[in-house]
Write a protein that binds this DNA or RNA. Sequence first.
DNA 1: GAGAGACTACTCGGATACAGTCTGTCCGAGTAAATCCGG
DNA 2: CCGGATTTACTCGGACAGACTGTATCCGAGTAGTCTCTC
Lengths: 161, 161
Amino acid sequence: MILKSQVEWVLHCCAILSALPENKYLATKDLAEFNGLPKEYLSKALQSLSQAGLLVSTLGPSGGYRLAKPPGEITFLDVIEAVEGKNSTFQCTEIRQKNPCRPKGYCEPAPCGIARVMGEADEAWRQKLRSVSLTDLSRMLTEGVPPELLQKSFEWILART
Amino acid sequence: MILKSQVEWVLHCCAILSALPENKYLATKDLAEFNGLPKEYLSKALQSLSQAGLLVSTLGPSGGYRLAKPPGEITFLDVIEAVEGKNSTFQCTEIRQKNPCRPKGYCEPAPCGIARVMGEADEAWRQKLRSVSLTDLSRMLTEGVPPELLQKSFEWILART
DNA sequence: GAGAGACTACTCGGATACAGTCTGTCCGAGTAAATCCGG
DNA sequence: CCGGATTTACTCGGACAGACTGTATCCGAGTAGTCTCTC
């Protein structure tokens, strides 16, 4: 069980888009180039975010993506669920119903204990991801980085906006 | 990102093996039949548990598997990691090193912020799974189930031990 | 100089391809208990 | 009746195959700015 590499990609892209001036768009091509990623496939991931309502896109020249909401209102979980889907990491197939000793037509009174534990673990994971916003991410990604590198990156991005 | 179905299978199998008398073995064939699972493929999963030191196997007739430790000393996480591996759900590929503005030979001072958050979420998930043992599981799976069904299942298993 | 039309750069969506993983099956080698057979 | 040889029932491990998912690539359709051309 491992997350798609797209998850890492779009999180980095979201961090960049957070730094963009109001109402400016950045093209997939530039996001791909800045992160050293395959443009076409990254595009698919960004489309997912767009469909999830996290990004807004514009066509034509100087088109591209921008955040659909303030970075403080977008969480890690939003981004990850947009790419991975909202399904729980554990799918209960009701194995207990296969028990040969089980009377026909017997109806289980409560959800399977295994599913319950797995569901709680999944929720703990999601809760942690829900607690971190893109604003928090920007802070974490910039602290400890030399100012001239930040400045240079910012200008690189701004020049393509 | 979804867990293998083998995870659900072996958790159910572990619950059954927890109920076994001391030093009694149950064959893969019977575990598969009781849970309505493909015997050969289930066998692969049980082998993983055996290699992880959670189960002990014996060859020959009346062979099979039993728990290697008291059920209170085996956790959900032990079982899941035996099947899924111990890798984190998130693999950081150090995208930030691809930044075209990054000076050559520049060395990152700290782990990537994204990897840190994802790692913490992963740890929250594992922590929850670490807190539930097979003893807890047995309690959860039996409560609310009619005594005659439990009795019948127990005899079914015991007859094949 | 202004307006209409052509051009360009981009997103979007579908089609396709390839590799790896998940799920499942089959079979032979090795092993331990049960059975059989000879003395 | 006893001990060794054979049979049997199981695990273990490897080989194999099909389906699905993840990782890409390519291209055509649609769109919004920009450019050009004509009046």
